[in-house]
Each structure stands twice: as structure tokens, then as C-alpha cells.
Write a protein that binds this DNA or RNA. Sequence first.
DNA 1: CTATTTTTAATGATTAACATTAAAAATAGA
DNA 2: TCTATTTTTAATGTTAATCATTAAAAATAG
Lengths: 70, 70
Amino acid sequence: MGKIVLRLDRMMVERKISLNELAERVGISNVNLSKIKNNKVTAIRFSTLAAICKVLECEVGDILEYQKND
Amino acid sequence: MGKIVLRLDRMMVERKISLNELAERVGISNVNLSKIKNNKVTAIRFSTLAAICKVLECEVGDILEYQKND
DNA sequence: CTATTTTTAATGATTAACATTAAAAATAGA
DNA sequence: TCTATTTTTAATGTTAATCATTAAAAATAG
């Protein structure tokens, strides 16, 4: 069926930013960012996604990917 | 502040698929797909996004982009 | 070991996707 | 121009799920 996978790790390592700091700068709780980071959410608001892209200075495609199976 | 923009048009033209057909194959109403296509939504479910990517045979970055403004 | 960071869990509020129906607007075809 | 099809807008209601908050457990760092 394929699914959407969020991959924050790479960019976070690249930008040398911790989860707590990213959460603060993005403007959401670290608890929720942890969920997002570990693919425990099934949707995301564009405002949140935009804030993440802004702080991490990256494109949507850098953190969201479509993973098809088979 | 920057925002997320959905761009379905390009891929739809490229795949030569109408909004009604895409809606049907994605599994959502044409009304909602129209909203998505015209950026009238503020969030999206990964299941919907994955279905769109599947039908259009594309990556997330092909239809979702972060647009920063100065 | 201890302090910090990250993850998990549970609860609750609020937002908003999505369905549905109906009508208006836009587009295409004859 | 007229007509059929497609797309968009509008309104209403249901349901899903983000996100906040609090607290505790687990993992990591020093």
C-alpha cells in the first residue's frame, strides 16, 4: 500500500540540533515533536511542517518521503 | 513566515488524469480533492498523501513544497 | 552514578479533515 | 451558442487526530 515516512534525524544531525531545541524553535512541545520524529502521528498540519522546514532550513522532500512496498 | 504549498496540477497534467478520476482512485471525495488541490486545507493525513503519491506515481517533494517568504 | 535528553502514556481540548448534498462557476464539445 | 461535463464553492455534521499538559520511564551523556 505504501506509506509516508517522516525522517527528521538526518537533518537534525546535519544541523546539530537537539529535539528539545528543535521543539522550542518550531513552537510545539517536545512530546509532540518526539511523536512526529518517531512516526507516531498519522497527519500533520502545514503550519507545523513549514516551521520544521524553516528551522531545519530544508525542503519538504528532505523530511517526508513516500515509501512504497513491493 | 513561509508556508507549505500543494501542487497537484503539474503531476495531474503529466499523468493526464482528471480531478474526478484522481479523487476516485485516491479514495476521497472530489470536493475534498478540489480543496486540497487549491490549498484550502491546512493539514493532510499521511494516508491521503500516500494514496496521492501512489496514484500519481511521484514523491512527496513533487507535490508538497515549502515556500519561504524573505 | 547522576543529570539531561528522549520516549511513552494518559487525558482533554480544539482544530480541521473528510463525507455528503446542493448549487454555482468554469470548461469542453458539438 | 447551447449543452454536458468537470471543477469549485458553500454549508452542515461527524469523526479523527494534532497538540498541550503532566508525569513517569527509558535512554543517553558526562
